[in-house]
Write a protein that binds this DNA or RNA. Sequence first.
DNA 1: CCGTCGATTGACACATTCTGCCATTTGGCA
DNA 2: TGCCAAATGGCAGAATGTGTCAATCGACGG
Lengths: 213, 213
Amino acid sequence: MTIASVPTSGLAERKKQRTREELATAAITFFLQRGYDATTVEDIVAAVDVSPRTFYRYFPAKEDLVLAIGESHNEELVAAVRARPASESPLTAVQNAIRQTQVLGPQDLDRVRSFRTLLSGTSALRGRWLIERQQDQQRLAAALADREGKAPEVRHVLAAAAVLAAVTIAFDEWVADGEGDPVTRVHDSVALLATPLLSTRPSHAGSTHGDKA
Amino acid sequence: MTIASVPTSGLAERKKQRTREELATAAITFFLQRGYDATTVEDIVAAVDVSPRTFYRYFPAKEDLVLAIGESHNEELVAAVRARPASESPLTAVQNAIRQTQVLGPQDLDRVRSFRTLLSGTSALRGRWLIERQQDQQRLAAALADREGKAPEVRHVLAAAAVLAAVTIAFDEWVADGEGDPVTRVHDSVALLATPLLSTRPSHAGSTHGDKA
DNA sequence: CCGTCGATTGACACATTCTGCCATTTGGCA
DNA sequence: TGCCAAATGGCAGAATGTGTCAATCGACGG
C-alpha cells in the first residue's frame, strides 16, 4: 500500500468527486429555481439518485453545500495581503491583494453571482456565511497586525471588519441592481476606506477605473 | 368594547406576560448553564409547565427567545442619531447617540453580558443576530444619509457598517477578557473611526475617559 | 480470475425544531 | 350566569440531522 489511504487516486475517487459535484449542481439549480427553503434534501438526492444519508456524508448540512461553492476566496485574500511587501500601506496592500484575487473569468462571474444571489435571498444562508466571514475577519486582522509586527489590537480587527464590509456591500449592491461589474464596485467601495468614514465630505473617492461620467 | 382588542388590560394580560417572562428566564438560565444547543424546548417548557406548542406561540423560534432579550437597543441608537443636531459631524452625532443609549444600570449590565456571552458562544445565535444587525445597518445608513439630506449611498452604508462593527468588536472583546466596563470600550472603539482605518499610524486615539495608563 | 480488506453506501431508527389543526379551557364582559 | 374570543394542549406531520449496522463496491495482492 501507499503511505496512507489519503489520495486513493483511482476510479473510486473520481466517482466520489462526481457525486459531490452532481449533488452541488442539482442543489444550486433547485435553489435558484424554487428557492433554498423550498428545496428539500429529499429533492436533491432524488435528482442524483443517492440516499439522503449520503448527502450528509458529503455536506455536514444543507447550508454547507452552498457555502462550499463560494468558499476559500477570502483565504486567498488574506494570504495575498500577507504576501504584499511591508513597504505598502495597509490600504494599498489590501487593494493590491484584492486586485490579485478578484481576477474573474466570465463563468466565474456567473458562479459568484449565483452564490451572492442565494446569500442575499436567504437569511439562513446569509447568517451562516456571516459567521464564516467573522473568522476571515480575525485572520485578516492578524495579517494586518503582522504587517506592523504587532499583536492584533482592536484597531486591526476594526480595519479588517471595514474591509470585509466594503467588499460585502459592493457585492450586495451589485446583486441588487445588477449593473456594472463587481470588480470595479469592490475597488471603489474599498477606496472609501482611505478617508475617515464618518466625515461629511464625500471626499471625491471616485472609481479608479473608468469613471468618465 | 374598546376600539379593538389590542390591550385587553386585565388579568389575562398579566398572566401572558408572566408566562412569557418565565419562559425567557428558564430558558436563559438553562442556556447559560448547559449551553444553547444542549437545552431543548422540551426542557424549557417542562420548567414552566406549559406545552411545547405554547412555547412557539410566544416565540417564533428558539433563537428568537434570546434575540428578544437584547433587542431594540440599536433602534434606539438610530433614533438618537436622527435626533442629534445637524450641526454635529457624523462621528460626533454617533458618539453622542451612543452615549445617550448606553446608559446601563448594574443589572442591565449583567443582562447584556449574558446576552453577549450567548452570542459569542453559539454560532447559530450569532448568525441569526448578525442578520438583524444588517437591518440596523441599513437603518443607520439611512439616518446618516438623511443628516446630509441625501439618499443613502455606499459611503453611508459602509460608515454604518463600521460603526456597528466597532460596537460589536468592543462588546466581543469585553466578553472575551471580561475586563473593564463596556461603555468605555465601545467609546474607544468608535473613536477609532475618526481616522482612516487603514493607515499604519495608531494615531493616538486613546480612551476619552480614564486612560492614565 | 479470485478473495480479502477497507471505504462507501443504503436503510432504519431516532432526536429536535417547527407548523397546521382542532377540541378544550379560560378569561372578559354583558 | 352565559356567551364570545383568545389562549392552550395535544396530536400528526414535515424537515433537518445523527448514530448504527449490514450490504456493497473498488483496490490490491495472489
